[in-house]
Design a protein around this nucleic acid. Structure first.
Lengths: 198, 198
DNA sequence: TTAAAACGTTAACAAAAGATAAGAAAAACA
DNA sequence: TGTTTTTCTTATCTTTTGTTAACGTTTTAA
């Protein structure tokens, strides 16, 4: 996909939150950067301040921690979606997790500098503030669901729930990543699967 | 506390996110409503669209679900803080949880209508959008931590973590609520406590 | 293409959690 | 104050999960 098409895909994705006029979009998109990341490459790393907000229009990624020397996969993202070490990006602090590509991927990058340019540019500021608010609100609601499922459901129920929604996740992701995502061990997930099939 | 003092407490709390000028604040605060809720009263209920964003300046509350006929406490809030059925408030959908006061409480209420008045008023719009964004971002980061603790830590570790941070929670909240919050049963929390003391 | 690494399942045992019930202590309240 | 309700702990038993290790299969990469 060329950069123009990528930019349009991004614009189209954003339209669920906000619609910039052509003129506004011309100003905003001038600052976008395009990036290709190979499978296993890192978009964000522990200990580094993430200066980039990414829009992944091709590919996928996983979020992971290292815990007692072991990788624990936290979350997945599939194109088209945002990809970001929010906390690090927003607070300008060193991050606590890695973001690694699951396949060769292509992204539109909004640097921290450009994001703030958009937040301060007279013509873009208001819509950009709203965009930022709506995006944060959207993910807030997602997190709310996720926490609720940890609090009110058993691992088996969480897995069944995932089967219902996350068709893509189930088919494209190694099972031990999914186990981590559910907060259990890979061995335990394997047993749950056997239990369900029986 | 009288309504003027309450309004000032609210303004002071908001100053961590944004500072309205006196003139702006005069416009904004005109629409605030004041509410007193007794212990056990509900701020939000399942099945009802929440039309109110609350700022609790005195008191505390818990968020809870009903699951198989049993209450499951999800979260706690202590003054001063926001209190809101976000998902319901933001999306105008019937809510999936209750918010119940843990003690007699006093709140500043921003109705959905007034919030949108603030988002659209020429003098307030920009700061209000930013306020909304910063609040959402703040809670997003909180949720991120909470999910990470479910994914990477055992119930016992989550409890120890809570002991470190949440002094208030530990002392003022019944233990079976805390057990719910940690995603385990009250019996299990009791055993964890014995294990730790030994 | 071949060697190495990663993946998923299963087994065996230990540790922890869920469910249920009983009883004591504390808190609510009338 | 006295009674009821709530809260917390403990015990027993069952179920589930964690841990470690083994094995066959698939994928990766040299």
């Amino acid at each position: 996909m060329d950069t123009l098409a990528a930019t349009e895909t991004f614009r189209d994705y954003l339209s669920r939150y906000i619609t910039y006029t052509d003129e506004e979009w011309a100003i905003a998109s001038k600052g976008f950067v395009f990036s290709t990341l190979k499978k296993k490459a890192y978009f964000a790393e522990v200990g580094k301040v993430s200066n980039e907000l990414g829009f992944i229009y091709k590919g996928s990624a996983r979020y992971l921690h290292i815990r007692n020397g072991e990788e624990i996969t936290n979350y997945f993202t599939f194109a088209p979606d945002f990809i970001s070490a929010y906390k690090s990006f927003l607070r300008r602090e060193p991050g606590h997790n890695y973001i690694q590509m699951l396949e060769d991927s292509e992204l539109v990058i909004v640097t921290h500098k450009h994001w703030h340019f958009m937040l301060e540019h007279p013509q873009l500021a208001h819509k950009t503030e709203r965009l930022g608010r709506l995006i944060a609100e959207h993910y807030l609601c997602c997190y709310d669901d996720r926490v609720a499922s940890f609090v009110t459901k058993s691992p088996e129920e969480r897995y069944l729930e995932l089967l219902d929604e996350g068709k893509e996740v189930i088919q494209r992701i190694p099972q031990h990543y999914i186990a981590n995502f559910l907060g259990i061990t890979p061995v335990s997930l394997s047993r749950i699967r056997r239990r369900i099939l029986a």
